[in-house]
C-alpha cells in the first residue's frame, strides 16, 4: 500500500531541488535534449492548426494564417465559452466535494491504525485499478432513474470515483508525515479544537492539501469516457468539445479547443507551484 502512496507525493515535494554529481553532465545532456524535443513536438501541430487555414500535405507550415477559429471561439455565446464554463464548474465542484469527503479519510489513513483499515485502503485503491467504464455502465440505469444523466450534477457525482482515490492517497501521505505533537502542545496551552485546527494543523498541511486539490481538479478536468457516458451529449466539457471538432473534421476548431483544453491545467500547475514556492520560502 505504501508503495502506491509514495507516488502521490512527488508533485508536492518538488523534485526540482535535486543535488547532483557534476562530472557526467555532457553524456546526460543529449538524451535529455531529445526528450525535451519529444515532449514538445506533438504540441506544435496543435498550436499551428489553431491558426491554420487550408493546410495540406506536403506544406510543412500553413500557407495561410487565419484567426477565424479563434474569433469564433471567443464570439458571444460560442460553444467554446460554454464548454470552458462547464469544464471549470464541473471540475471545481468535483475537486471541492472530493476534498470535503476525502481529506478526513486521508487523515485517518495517514495517522491512525484502526480495525478494517486494510478494507478501506482497498476500496480507495480499487477505482485506480479497475477501469471505470464498466462501473459507469452499471451506474447508468440508476442515474437515469434519478434523473441525473445528462446533468452536470450527475457528471460531478461520477467524477468522485476517479477523484476520491487521489485526494485520499495524497492527503494520507501528507498526514503521515504530520507531527501531532504540535497539536497536542496547542491543546495543552489551552487552545480549543477549532483554534488548533485553524492555527496549527491547517497551516502545516495546507501545502500538501493544495497539491491534493490541484490533482483532484486535473483528474476531473481530463475525464472523457465518463463524461460522454453519463453526460449523454448534454454536458459538453472541453475534452468533449475537442472530440466533437475532430468528428466534424474541423482541424482549425479542434486546434483552438485543444489549446484551450491545455491552458487551464497549466494555470493550475503554475498557481499551485507559485503558492507552494512562496510557502516554502517563508
Amino acid at each position: 500500500m505504501t508503495a502506491i502512496w509514495s507516488i502521490a507525493t512527488p508533485v508536492g515535494d518538488k523534485p526540482a531541488t535535486v543535488p547532483s554529481a557534476a562530472p557526467t553532465k555532457r553524456r546526460a545532456g543529449l538524451p535529455l535534449l531529445l526528450l525535451v524535443a519529444w515532449l514538445v513536438v506533438p504540441l506544435v501541430p496543435v498550436v499551428l492548426w489553431s491558426v491554420a487555414r487550408g493546410w495540406f500535405f506536403p506544406a510543412l507550415l500553413p500557407a495561410e494564417i487565419s484567426l477565424a477559429a479563434w474569433a469564433r471561439a471567443f464570439a458571444n455565446g460560442s460553444d467554446v465559452w460554454r464548454a470552458l464554463g462547464t469544464s471549470v464548474g464541473v471540475s471545481a465542484a468535483a475537486a471541492a466535494l472530493g476534498m470535503l469527503i476525502g481529506v478526513p479519510a486521508g487523515r485517518a489513513l495517514g495517522m491512525h491504525a484502526f480495525p478494517g483499515k486494510r478494507w478501506v485502503e482497498m476500496l480507495v485503491l480499487a477505482p485506480i485499478l479497475v477501469p471505470g467504464l464498466g462501473v459507469a455502465m452499471g451506474l447508468h440505469a440508476v442515474m437515469i432513474r434519478l434523473g441525473l444523466t445528462g446533468t452536470a450534477g450527475g457528471v460531478v457525482l461520477v467524477f468522485l470515483v476517479p477523484v476520491l482515490p487521489y485526494v485520499v492517497l495524497i492527503s494520507a501521505s501528507v498526514f503521515a508525515t504530520h507531527d501531532r505533537a504540535f497539536e497536542a502542545q496547542a491543546r495543552g496551552l489551552g487552545a480549543s479544537s477549532w483554534q488548533t485546527l485553524r492555527h496549527v494543523t491547517l497551516p502545516m498541511v495546507a501545502p500538501g492539501l493544495s497539491v491534493a486539490a490541484a490533482f483532484a481538479f486535473l483528474v476531473a478536468w481530463s475525464q472523457y469516457g465518463l463524461t460522454l457516458l453519463v453526460g449523454g451529449g448534454r454536458v459538453i466539457t472541453m475534452p468533449l468539445l475537442l472530440g466533437q471538432s475532430i468528428a466534424a473534421g474541423r482541424n482549425d476548431l479542434a486546434g483552438v479547443a485543444a489549446v484551450l483544453t491545455i491552458l487551464p491545467g497549466l494555470a493550475v500547475l503554475v498557481l499551485t507551484s507559485t503558492l507552494l514556492g512562496r510557502g516554502g520560502r517563508r
Partner: peptide, 29 residues
C-alpha cells in the same frame, strides 16, 4: 430550444430505450 449534439443518432435511440427500460415514461430527456 436546447440543441443537444450527438456523435451518432443511435445514441439517442439508446437513450430513449434505456430511459423507458428504467421506468421513465413521461419525463424523458
Amino acid at each position: 430550444v436546447n440543441r443537444v449534439g450527438v456523435a451518432d443518432t443511435a445514441e439517442v435511440v439508446n437513450q430513449v430505450l434505456s430511459e423507458t427500460e428504467a421506468g421513465v415514461t413521461d419525463a424523458g430527456s
